[in-house]
C-alpha cells in the first residue's frame, strides 16, 4: 500500500507536491468506485475512525463519513453539542478517552488554529484536519485543486482568484498553499478590512476590485461570508458587500472569456454569488462536493496504510 510522506494530514503546509499528486491519482480511482452500482470497497475494514467535530459542520462531516463508510471503516461520530467539552474536559482528555476505545484514526474539526498540531504531540493515532479555526482546511484545498485539475486538465499555470473574507478563512490559506505548490498563480480579492495585511508575503497578488480580478483569472473561488467568525463589523452591510463583491451573471457576461466558478459551500445565494451563476454551466460547485468524497477517501486510504 503506498502512502504519504507524513503520518497525519495536519495541513497543506506539512505535505509535499508528490503527496498531493498521489492523493489525486488515488482519488481518480475512488471517483470511479463511487460512480459504480456498488460504491463500497473493503480497503479500511477493521479500521475505526472517530469524527470529532468541536465546531458545527454539516457537509464536511457528511463527506468524511461517507468516505469512511465507502472504504468499509467503522465510524464513530462525536460533536461538541453532545460532548463533555462543555463540562470542562480538556481536548487531550477527550481524545485520549476516545482512543482508549481502540480508535485508529481521528478526523477533527476544531475552532482554534493549531489544535491539530497541538494534539499530534500528545496522542498516537493519526489525525486528519477537517478545519482548525482560521488556519487550514487541507481536504477542502485538495478537493478544490482536484476539481480544477478535472475541469481544466491541469492546475499548473492556471490563474485562480479567491474572493471574499480571506482574514477569517481557513479555506483561503490552504488553497493558497496547495495551488502554489501545484504551480498555479493565486490572487486574493475582497474588502481591504478582510485581507490580511501581510498576505502578499505568501506570494499572492492582492486585488480589491472584483471586475479586475475576474478579468485576470481562469477560476474564481467565491468564499462564503462567515459572519459567525467576525467578532466586529468588517464591512458596513451585506448589501454593500454584495454590490462590490457579489458575483452575478451581468459581471460574468462583461468578460470576454469563460471562467470557472467555485464555492466551498454552503452558499449564501444573493450575497457572494447569485443563483443564476451558482446554477450555471460555469459553476463546478456540485462537482466539488462529489470530488470531496473521493479526495477524502484517498487521504484516509493513504494514511491508513500507516496504522499500527
Amino acid at each position: 500500500m503506498s502512502s504519504l510522506s507524513t503520518r497525519h494530514l495536519l495541513g497543506i503546509k506539512q505535505i509535499n507536491e508528490a503527496d498531493i499528486q498521489r492523493i489525486f491519482e488515488t482519488a481518480d480511482n475512488f471517483k470511479a468506485v463511487i460512480n459504480r452500482p456498488i460504491k463500497k470497497v473493503p480497503s479500511l475494514r477493521d479500521i475505526t475512525i472517530a469524527n470529532l467535530f468541536f465546531e458545527n459542520s454539516t457537509r464536511t462531516r457528511v463527506s468524511f463519513e461517507l468516505a469512511e463508510k465507502r472504504l468499509s471503516a467503522d465510524v464513530v461520530n462525536f460533536s461538541s453539542s453532545s460532548s463533555s467539552v462543555s463540562k470542562g474536559e480538556t481536548l487531550i482528555d477527550t481524545v485520549k478517552n476516545i482512543l482508549s476505545m481502540k480508535v485508529d484514526m481521528v478526523v477533527m474539526r476544531h475552532p482554534k488554529p493549531g489544535a491539530h498540531i497541538f494534539l499530534s504531540k500528545h496522542i498516537d493515532a493519526q489525525i486528519i484536519n477537517a478545519g482548525d479555526g482560521t488556519h487550514e482546511h487541507p481536504t477542502q484545498a485538495l478537493l478544490d485543486a482536484f476539481s480544477i485539475r478535472e475541469k481544466l486538465g491541469d492546475v499548473a499555470g492556471k490563474k485562480i482568484v479567491i474572493v471574499g473574507d480571506i482574514l477569517h478563512s481557513r479555506v483561503a490559506l490552504s488553497n493558497i498553499l496547495c495551488l502554489q505548490r501545484l504551480g498555479a498563480e493565486v490572487m486574493v480579492c475582497g474588502p481591504t478590512t478582510l485581507i490580511p495585511k501581510y498576505i502578499d508575503q505568501l506570494g499572492v497578488k492582492v486585488e480589491h476590485n472584483l471586475d479586475k480580478a475576474l478579468a485576470w483569472c481562469d477560476v474564481a473561488n467565491m468564499l462564503r461570508i462567515q459572519l459567525e467568525r467576525q467578532d466586529i463589523k468588517y464591512f458596513p452591510s451585506l448589501r454593500e458587500y454584495s454590490v462590490q463583491y457579489g458575483l452575478d451573471m451581468e459581471r460574468l457576461n462583461r468578460l470576454d472569456k469563460q471562467i470557472t466558478i467555485m464555492h466551498p459551500g454552503p452558499i449564501n445565494r444573493g450575497v457572494e454569488i447569485s443563483s443564476d451563476v451558482a446554477d450555471s454551466e460555469h459553476s463546478i460547485i456540485l462537482q466539488q462536493v462529489e470530488n470531496g468524497v473521493a479526495v477524502r477517501m484517498a487521504v484516509l486510504y493513504l494514511l491508513a496504510g500507516q496504522v499500527g
Binding site: K13, P113, H135, L173, K197, Y198, Q201, L202, D231
Partner: peptide, 19 residues
C-alpha cells in the same frame, strides 16, 4: 484577542495578530 506578533508568521499560522 491577539495571540502573537502580526506579520508573516501570524498570517501563515492563522493566529490573530498583535500589530
Amino acid at each position: 484577542g491577539g495571540q502573537m506578533h502580526e506579520g508573516y508568521y501570524s498570517t501563515l499560522l492563522g493566529l490573530k495578530g498583535i500589530p
